[in-house]
Lab assay of single mutants.
Amino acid sequence: MTDQQAEARSYLSEEMIAEFKAAFDMFDADGGGDISVKELGTVMRMLGQTPTKEELDAIIEEVDEDGSGTIDFEEFLVMMVRQ
Rank of each mutant, 00 (worst) to 15 (best):
M1N: 13
M1F: 02
M1Q: 03
T2R: 14
T2L: 08
T2H: 04
T2Q: 15
D3V: 11
Q4R: 13
Q4C: 11
Q4L: 08
Q4T: 11
Q5E: 09
Q5D: 13
Q5P: 15
Q5K: 11
Q5V: 13
Q5F: 13
A6T: 09
A6W: 08
E7R: 09
E7Q: 09
A8N: 04
R9Q: 09
R9P: 09
S10L: 07
S10N: 15
S10T: 12
S10E: 11
Y11I: 03
Y11N: 10
L12Q: 02
L12V: 06
L12W: 09
L12T: 03
L12G: 03
L12Y: 07
S13L: 01
S13W: 04
E14W: 02
E14H: 08
E14P: 14
E15D: 06
E15R: 09
E15K: 13
E15F: 12
I17N: 03
I17A: 06
I17H: 02
A18P: 01
A18H: 03
A18S: 08
A18W: 03
A18I: 15
E19S: 08
E19P: 00
E19C: 04
E19R: 08
F20M: 13
K21P: 00
K21V: 00
A22P: 01
A22F: 08
A22H: 15
A22L: 08
A23K: 14
A23D: 00
A23L: 04
F24T: 00
D25V: 06
D25Y: 03
D25K: 11
M26V: 10
M26F: 14
M26K: 13
M26R: 14
M26G: 11
M26D: 09
F27W: 11
F27M: 07
D28T: 15
D28E: 05
D28N: 05
A29Q: 12
D30A: 07
D30V: 12
D30N: 13
G31A: 13
G31T: 03
G31D: 06
G31H: 15
G31Y: 02
G31R: 09
G32H: 13
G32C: 11
G32L: 10
G32I: 15
G32N: 11
G33Q: 04
G33V: 01
G33N: 02
G33M: 02
G33T: 03
D34P: 02
D34I: 06
D34T: 12
D34C: 13
I35E: 00
I35F: 02
S36A: 13
S36W: 05
V37P: 04
V37S: 06
V37G: 04
V37M: 13
K38G: 12
K38Y: 02
E39C: 11
E39T: 06
E39H: 12
E39P: 00
L40I: 04
L40D: 01
L40G: 01
G41K: 09
G41Q: 11
G41F: 05
T42D: 15
T42E: 13
V43Q: 01
M44H: 00
M44E: 00
M44V: 04
R45N: 02
R45H: 15
M46P: 00
M46E: 12
M46Y: 10
M46G: 10
M46L: 11
M46V: 09
L47Y: 03
L47D: 00
G48M: 03
G48I: 01
T50K: 12
T50P: 07
T50I: 01
T50L: 10
P51T: 09
P51G: 05
T52F: 01
T52S: 09
T52M: 12
T52W: 01
K53A: 12
K53Y: 07
K53F: 03
E54I: 12
E54W: 06
E54Y: 07
E54Q: 14
E54M: 06
E55C: 03
E55A: 12
E55T: 05
L56P: 01
L56F: 11
L56A: 03
L56D: 02
D57V: 11
D57L: 07
A58S: 10
A58T: 13
A58K: 15
A58Y: 05
A58M: 10
I59N: 05
I59Q: 05
I59T: 02
I59W: 09
I59G: 05
I59A: 05
I60D: 03
I60H: 14
I60W: 04
I60L: 08
E61N: 15
E61F: 06
E61S: 09
E61K: 13
E61L: 10
E61G: 15
E62R: 06
E62W: 15
E62A: 11
E62I: 08
V63A: 07
V63Q: 03
V63M: 13
V63D: 06
D64E: 03
D64L: 10
D64S: 14
D64H: 12
E65K: 02
E65S: 06
E65H: 10
E65G: 13
D66S: 08
D66L: 08
D66G: 07
D66E: 07
G67W: 06
G67P: 06
G67M: 15
S68P: 06
S68H: 05
G69K: 09
G69V: 02
T70F: 07
I71S: 00
I71H: 00
I71Q: 00
D72E: 08
D72K: 14
D72T: 15
D72Y: 07
F73C: 01
F73K: 02
F73P: 00
E74N: 11
E74L: 01
E74Q: 12
E75C: 09
E75D: 05
E75G: 11
F76G: 01
L77T: 10
L77R: 04
L77F: 02
V78A: 13
V78P: 11
V78L: 13
M79N: 02
M79C: 14
M79Q: 12
M79S: 11
M79P: 05
M80R: 00
M80T: 04
V81F: 03
R82Y: 06
R82F: 04
Q83I: 13
Q83V: 15
Q83R: 06
Q83E: 00
